[in-house]
Write a protein that binds this DNA or RNA. Sequence first.
DNA 1: TTCCTAGTTTATAATAATTCTAAAGTGAAA
DNA 2: TTTCACTTTAGAATTATTATAAACTAGGAA
Lengths: 135, 135
Amino acid sequence: MKLIEILNKLRSSGLRPTKQRVEIAKFLFDREKTIHFTVESLNKLLLKKTSTKFALATIYNTVHAFKAAGHLNEIEVRGKKTYFDTNVSNHHHFYDNDTSELIDINAKDVVIQKLPKAPNGKKIKNIEVFINLKN
Amino acid sequence: MKLIEILNKLRSSGLRPTKQRVEIAKFLFDREKTIHFTVESLNKLLLKKTSTKFALATIYNTVHAFKAAGHLNEIEVRGKKTYFDTNVSNHHHFYDNDTSELIDINAKDVVIQKLPKAPNGKKIKNIEVFINLKN
DNA sequence: TTCCTAGTTTATAATAATTCTAAAGTGAAA
DNA sequence: TTTCACTTTAGAATTATTATAAACTAGGAA
Ligand SMILES: [Mn+2]
Ligand SMILES: [Mn+2]
Ligand SMILES: [Zn+2]
Ligand SMILES: [Zn+2]
Protein backbone atom coordinates (compact mmCIF):
# COMPACT_ATOMS: atom_id res chain seq x y z
CA MET A 1 0.00 0.00 0.00
CA LYS A 2 1.41 3.35 -1.06
CA LEU A 3 2.01 6.24 1.27
CA ILE A 4 -0.69 8.26 -0.46
CA GLU A 5 -3.22 5.57 0.40
CA ILE A 6 -2.05 5.53 3.99
CA LEU A 7 -2.54 9.27 4.14
CA ASN A 8 -6.00 8.80 2.65
CA LYS A 9 -6.91 6.49 5.51
CA LEU A 10 -6.02 9.29 7.88
CA ARG A 11 -7.76 11.98 5.87
CA SER A 12 -10.95 9.95 5.53
CA SER A 13 -10.88 9.40 9.28
CA GLY A 14 -10.67 13.13 9.90
CA LEU A 15 -7.13 12.86 11.22
CA ARG A 16 -4.19 15.09 10.38
CA PRO A 17 -1.13 13.14 9.32
CA THR A 18 1.04 13.53 12.39
CA LYS A 19 4.16 11.48 13.01
CA GLN A 20 2.41 9.09 15.39
CA ARG A 21 -0.66 8.63 13.26
CA VAL A 22 1.31 7.96 10.10
CA GLU A 23 3.33 5.32 11.92
CA ILE A 24 0.19 3.67 13.24
CA ALA A 25 -1.52 3.76 9.85
CA LYS A 26 1.54 2.40 8.06
CA PHE A 27 1.88 -0.37 10.58
CA LEU A 28 -1.77 -1.36 10.33
CA PHE A 29 -2.51 -0.96 6.64
CA ASP A 30 0.81 -1.44 4.85
CA ARG A 31 0.83 -5.22 4.97
CA GLU A 32 -0.20 -8.23 2.94
CA LYS A 33 -2.35 -10.05 5.47
CA THR A 34 -4.87 -8.47 7.78
CA ILE A 35 -4.05 -8.35 11.47
CA HIS A 36 -5.97 -8.71 14.75
CA PHE A 37 -4.64 -6.74 17.68
CA THR A 38 -5.40 -5.14 21.01
CA VAL A 39 -4.34 -1.62 21.92
CA GLU A 40 -1.70 -3.07 24.20
CA SER A 41 -0.30 -5.47 21.59
CA LEU A 42 -0.28 -2.71 18.99
CA ASN A 43 1.69 -0.50 21.35
CA LYS A 44 4.31 -3.20 21.87
CA LEU A 45 4.59 -3.90 18.15
CA LEU A 46 5.00 -0.19 17.40
CA LEU A 47 7.73 0.06 20.01
CA LYS A 48 9.68 -2.65 18.19
CA LYS A 49 9.11 -1.42 14.67
CA THR A 50 9.60 2.30 15.10
CA SER A 51 11.67 4.72 17.12
CA THR A 52 8.63 6.89 17.87
CA LYS A 53 7.04 6.99 21.31
CA PHE A 54 3.28 6.61 21.62
CA ALA A 55 1.07 7.56 24.52
CA LEU A 56 -1.61 4.91 25.01
CA ALA A 57 -4.22 7.64 24.66
CA THR A 58 -2.93 8.41 21.17
CA ILE A 59 -3.29 4.81 20.15
CA TYR A 60 -6.78 4.58 21.61
CA ASN A 61 -7.82 7.79 19.87
CA THR A 62 -6.36 6.85 16.51
CA VAL A 63 -7.72 3.34 16.53
CA HIS A 64 -11.18 4.58 17.47
CA ALA A 65 -11.11 7.13 14.67
CA PHE A 66 -10.19 4.40 12.19
CA LYS A 67 -13.01 2.30 13.53
CA ALA A 68 -15.51 5.15 13.21
CA ALA A 69 -14.38 5.62 9.59
CA GLY A 70 -14.81 1.94 8.88
CA HIS A 71 -11.12 1.17 8.46
CA LEU A 72 -11.08 -1.14 11.47
CA ASN A 73 -13.55 -3.52 13.04
CA GLU A 74 -13.86 -4.10 16.75
CA ILE A 75 -14.25 -7.70 17.87
CA GLU A 76 -15.42 -8.86 21.23
CA VAL A 77 -13.69 -11.93 22.56
CA ARG A 78 -14.17 -13.70 25.83
CA GLY A 79 -11.74 -11.80 27.99
CA LYS A 80 -11.06 -8.35 29.14
CA LYS A 81 -9.43 -6.58 26.24
CA THR A 82 -11.01 -5.45 23.01
CA TYR A 83 -9.60 -6.74 19.74
CA PHE A 84 -9.44 -4.75 16.53
CA ASP A 85 -9.30 -6.19 13.04
CA THR A 86 -7.92 -4.64 9.88
CA ASN A 87 -10.16 -6.97 7.92
CA VAL A 88 -13.33 -4.92 7.59
CA SER A 89 -15.03 -7.20 5.12
CA ASN A 90 -17.83 -9.48 6.26
CA HIS A 91 -16.11 -12.53 7.70
CA HIS A 92 -15.97 -14.89 10.66
CA HIS A 93 -13.40 -16.10 13.18
CA PHE A 94 -11.75 -19.01 14.79
CA TYR A 95 -10.68 -18.25 18.32
CA ASP A 96 -7.86 -20.18 19.87
CA ASN A 97 -8.33 -19.87 23.59
CA ASP A 98 -4.84 -21.22 24.32
CA THR A 99 -3.03 -18.53 22.36
CA SER A 100 -5.77 -15.87 22.61
CA GLU A 101 -5.48 -15.65 18.84
CA LEU A 102 -8.14 -14.76 16.29
CA ILE A 103 -7.99 -16.37 12.85
CA ASP A 104 -10.02 -15.16 9.91
CA ILE A 105 -12.60 -17.31 8.19
CA ASN A 106 -13.66 -16.25 4.74
CA ALA A 107 -17.37 -15.45 4.64
CA LYS A 108 -17.78 -17.96 1.82
CA ASP A 109 -16.44 -20.77 3.96
CA VAL A 110 -19.46 -20.58 6.25
CA VAL A 111 -22.83 -21.28 4.71
CA ILE A 112 -25.89 -21.00 6.88
CA GLN A 113 -28.89 -22.93 5.65
CA LYS A 114 -31.46 -21.98 8.21
CA LEU A 115 -31.86 -18.90 10.35
CA PRO A 116 -34.50 -17.83 12.86
CA LYS A 117 -36.54 -14.76 12.02
CA ALA A 118 -35.71 -11.61 13.91
CA PRO A 119 -37.95 -10.65 16.85
CA ASN A 120 -40.92 -8.39 16.19
CA GLY A 121 -39.96 -4.99 14.84
CA LYS A 122 -36.30 -5.88 14.59
CA LYS A 123 -34.11 -6.69 11.64
CA ILE A 124 -30.91 -8.65 11.34
CA LYS A 125 -27.94 -6.33 11.11
CA ASN A 126 -25.21 -8.90 10.74
CA ILE A 127 -24.27 -12.43 11.70
CA GLU A 128 -21.08 -13.32 13.48
CA VAL A 129 -19.94 -16.92 13.59
CA PHE A 130 -17.38 -17.63 16.20
CA ILE A 131 -15.66 -21.01 16.23
CA ASN A 132 -13.84 -21.82 19.44
CA LEU A 133 -10.87 -24.11 19.06
CA LYS A 134 -9.31 -26.73 21.29
CA ASN A 135 -6.24 -28.94 20.89
CA MET B 1 -37.76 -26.25 40.62
CA LYS B 2 -37.88 -27.66 44.11
CA LEU B 3 -35.76 -26.44 46.97
CA ILE B 4 -33.90 -29.74 47.02
CA GLU B 5 -32.82 -29.18 43.45
CA ILE B 6 -31.70 -25.67 44.26
CA LEU B 7 -29.61 -27.04 47.09
CA ASN B 8 -28.18 -29.61 44.68
CA LYS B 9 -26.98 -26.82 42.42
CA LEU B 10 -25.08 -25.43 45.35
CA ARG B 11 -23.75 -28.77 46.51
CA SER B 12 -22.58 -29.73 43.04
CA SER B 13 -20.80 -26.38 42.82
CA GLY B 14 -18.97 -27.05 46.06
CA LEU B 15 -20.88 -24.35 47.88
CA ARG B 16 -22.41 -24.52 51.33
CA PRO B 17 -26.03 -23.43 51.37
CA THR B 18 -25.72 -20.08 53.06
CA LYS B 19 -28.53 -17.51 53.13
CA GLN B 20 -27.04 -15.46 50.30
CA ARG B 21 -26.23 -18.41 48.10
CA VAL B 22 -29.64 -19.98 48.47
CA GLU B 23 -31.27 -16.67 47.51
CA ILE B 24 -29.05 -16.36 44.45
CA ALA B 25 -29.64 -19.95 43.40
CA LYS B 26 -33.40 -19.67 43.90
CA PHE B 27 -33.48 -16.48 41.91
CA LEU B 28 -31.48 -17.91 39.03
CA PHE B 29 -32.79 -21.44 38.78
CA ASP B 30 -36.32 -21.36 40.14
CA ARG B 31 -37.96 -19.95 37.01
CA GLU B 32 -39.69 -21.04 33.83
CA LYS B 33 -37.56 -19.26 31.27
CA THR B 34 -33.82 -18.97 31.29
CA ILE B 35 -32.32 -15.57 32.04
CA HIS B 36 -29.34 -13.54 30.84
CA PHE B 37 -27.81 -11.19 33.36
CA THR B 38 -24.75 -9.27 34.46
CA VAL B 39 -23.43 -9.24 37.99
CA GLU B 40 -24.71 -5.71 38.38
CA SER B 41 -28.19 -6.47 37.04
CA LEU B 42 -28.40 -9.57 39.22
CA ASN B 43 -27.53 -7.51 42.26
CA LYS B 44 -30.31 -5.04 41.52
CA LEU B 45 -32.84 -7.77 40.90
CA LEU B 46 -31.90 -9.49 44.14
CA LEU B 47 -32.31 -6.23 46.02
CA LYS B 48 -35.88 -5.98 44.77
CA LYS B 49 -36.86 -9.58 45.29
CA THR B 50 -35.32 -10.29 48.67
CA SER B 51 -34.61 -8.54 51.93
CA THR B 52 -31.10 -9.94 52.07
CA LYS B 53 -28.04 -7.80 51.44
CA PHE B 54 -25.36 -9.05 49.05
CA ALA B 55 -21.79 -7.89 48.75
CA LEU B 56 -20.78 -7.73 45.10
CA ALA B 57 -17.90 -10.07 45.87
CA THR B 58 -20.38 -12.69 47.07
CA ILE B 59 -22.30 -12.48 43.82
CA TYR B 60 -19.13 -12.70 41.77
CA ASN B 61 -17.91 -15.68 43.76
CA THR B 62 -21.20 -17.53 43.62
CA VAL B 63 -21.78 -16.91 39.94
CA HIS B 64 -18.26 -18.03 39.09
CA ALA B 65 -18.70 -21.20 41.11
CA PHE B 66 -21.92 -21.95 39.22
CA LYS B 67 -20.12 -21.33 35.97
CA ALA B 68 -17.26 -23.65 36.93
CA ALA B 69 -19.83 -26.34 37.75
CA GLY B 70 -21.54 -25.86 34.41
CA HIS B 71 -24.73 -24.37 35.83
CA LEU B 72 -24.15 -21.05 34.09
CA ASN B 73 -22.57 -19.98 30.82
CA GLU B 74 -20.58 -16.83 30.36
CA ILE B 75 -21.30 -14.84 27.22
CA GLU B 76 -19.14 -12.17 25.73
CA VAL B 77 -20.98 -9.23 24.29
CA ARG B 78 -19.62 -6.10 22.73
CA GLY B 79 -19.34 -3.92 25.76
CA LYS B 80 -17.71 -3.79 29.09
CA LYS B 81 -19.70 -6.13 31.29
CA THR B 82 -19.81 -9.88 31.18
CA TYR B 83 -23.16 -11.59 30.71
CA PHE B 84 -24.14 -14.87 32.28
CA ASP B 85 -26.77 -17.25 30.99
CA THR B 86 -28.80 -19.82 32.88
CA ASN B 87 -29.32 -21.63 29.60
CA VAL B 88 -26.34 -23.96 29.52
CA SER B 89 -27.50 -25.99 26.55
CA ASN B 90 -25.91 -25.48 23.16
CA HIS B 91 -27.68 -22.50 21.66
CA HIS B 92 -27.19 -19.16 19.94
CA HIS B 93 -28.17 -15.53 20.51
CA PHE B 94 -29.74 -12.47 19.09
CA TYR B 95 -28.21 -9.32 20.50
CA ASP B 96 -30.22 -6.14 20.55
CA ASN B 97 -27.71 -3.35 20.77
CA ASP B 98 -30.39 -0.76 21.60
CA THR B 99 -31.59 -2.54 24.73
CA SER B 100 -28.32 -4.42 25.44
CA GLU B 101 -30.51 -7.52 25.57
CA LEU B 102 -29.61 -11.09 24.70
CA ILE B 103 -32.31 -13.36 23.25
CA ASP B 104 -31.94 -17.11 22.98
CA ILE B 105 -32.02 -18.91 19.68
CA ASN B 106 -32.70 -22.62 19.78
CA ALA B 107 -29.76 -24.59 18.39
CA LYS B 108 -32.13 -26.25 15.94
CA ASP B 109 -33.13 -22.93 14.44
CA VAL B 110 -29.67 -22.40 13.04
CA VAL B 111 -28.43 -24.92 10.52
CA ILE B 112 -24.92 -24.54 9.16
CA GLN B 113 -24.33 -26.21 5.83
CA LYS B 114 -20.67 -25.54 5.34
CA LEU B 115 -17.86 -25.00 7.80
CA PRO B 116 -14.13 -24.45 7.36
CA LYS B 117 -11.82 -27.08 8.73
CA ALA B 118 -9.99 -26.23 11.92
CA PRO B 119 -6.36 -25.10 11.65
CA ASN B 120 -3.63 -27.72 11.87
CA GLY B 121 -3.58 -29.59 15.14
CA LYS B 122 -6.70 -27.89 16.41
CA LYS B 123 -10.25 -29.11 16.78
CA ILE B 124 -13.53 -27.29 16.89
CA LYS B 125 -14.76 -26.99 20.46
CA ASN B 126 -18.02 -25.23 19.78
CA ILE B 127 -19.68 -22.79 17.43
CA GLU B 128 -21.35 -19.60 18.55
CA VAL B 129 -23.66 -17.75 16.21
CA PHE B 130 -24.33 -14.21 17.19
CA ILE B 131 -27.02 -12.28 15.34
CA ASN B 132 -26.90 -8.54 15.85
CA LEU B 133 -30.23 -6.77 15.58
CA LYS B 134 -31.26 -3.34 14.39
CA ASN B 135 -34.63 -1.60 14.24
C1' DT C 1 9.60 33.14 6.60
C1' DT C 2 7.23 34.02 10.84
C1' DC C 3 2.92 33.93 13.38
C1' DC C 4 -1.04 32.12 14.94
C1' DT C 5 -4.17 28.81 16.31
C1' DA C 6 -6.84 24.74 16.03
C1' DG C 7 -5.69 20.39 16.45
C1' DT C 8 -2.57 16.93 18.76
C1' DT C 9 0.25 14.43 22.08
C1' DT C 10 1.13 13.21 26.47
C1' DA C 11 1.31 12.30 31.47
C1' DT C 12 -1.67 11.72 34.71
C1' DA C 13 -6.22 11.41 36.86
C1' DA C 14 -10.70 9.42 36.69
C1' DT C 15 -13.87 5.71 35.87
C1' DA C 16 -15.72 1.09 35.56
C1' DA C 17 -15.61 -3.84 35.94
C1' DT C 18 -13.58 -7.24 38.34
C1' DT C 19 -10.58 -9.51 41.70
C1' DC C 20 -8.12 -9.57 46.05
C1' DT C 21 -7.61 -9.18 51.06
C1' DA C 22 -8.16 -9.64 55.66
C1' DA C 23 -11.17 -9.12 59.43
C1' DA C 24 -15.55 -10.39 61.38
C1' DG C 25 -19.32 -13.73 61.08
C1' DT C 26 -21.51 -18.41 60.68
C1' DG C 27 -22.92 -23.40 59.54
C1' DA C 28 -22.59 -27.75 60.94
C1' DA C 29 -19.73 -31.69 62.58
C1' DA C 30 -18.33 -33.61 66.77
C1' DT D 1 -22.08 -26.18 73.12
C1' DT D 2 -17.75 -25.76 71.11
C1' DT D 3 -14.85 -25.34 67.37
C1' DC D 4 -13.04 -24.24 63.00
C1' DA D 5 -13.07 -24.31 58.22
C1' DC D 6 -15.76 -21.93 55.28
C1' DT D 7 -18.24 -17.28 54.19
C1' DT D 8 -19.44 -12.67 53.89
C1' DT D 9 -18.17 -8.20 53.56
C1' DA D 10 -16.11 -3.50 53.04
C1' DG D 11 -12.73 -1.66 51.12
C1' DA D 12 -8.30 -1.84 48.59
C1' DA D 13 -6.01 -3.33 44.38
C1' DT D 14 -5.91 -4.29 39.55
C1' DT D 15 -6.89 -3.77 34.71
C1' DA D 16 -8.77 -1.73 30.64
C1' DT D 17 -10.41 2.32 29.07
C1' DT D 18 -11.68 7.23 28.89
C1' DA D 19 -11.18 12.07 30.39
C1' DT D 20 -8.40 16.13 31.37
C1' DA D 21 -5.56 19.82 30.78
C1' DA D 22 -1.04 21.52 29.86
C1' DA D 23 2.66 21.49 26.50
C1' DC D 24 3.51 20.93 21.63
C1' DT D 25 3.02 21.24 16.40
C1' DA D 26 1.18 21.33 11.58
C1' DG D 27 0.14 24.19 8.32
C1' DG D 28 -2.55 28.26 6.57
C1' DA D 29 -2.42 33.42 6.85
C1' DA D 30 0.16 37.48 7.09
MN1 LIG E 1 -15.26 -8.20 30.61
MN1 LIG F 1 -13.82 -4.56 27.00
ZN1 LIG G 1 -10.85 -10.93 11.28
ZN1 LIG H 1 -28.77 -17.76 26.10
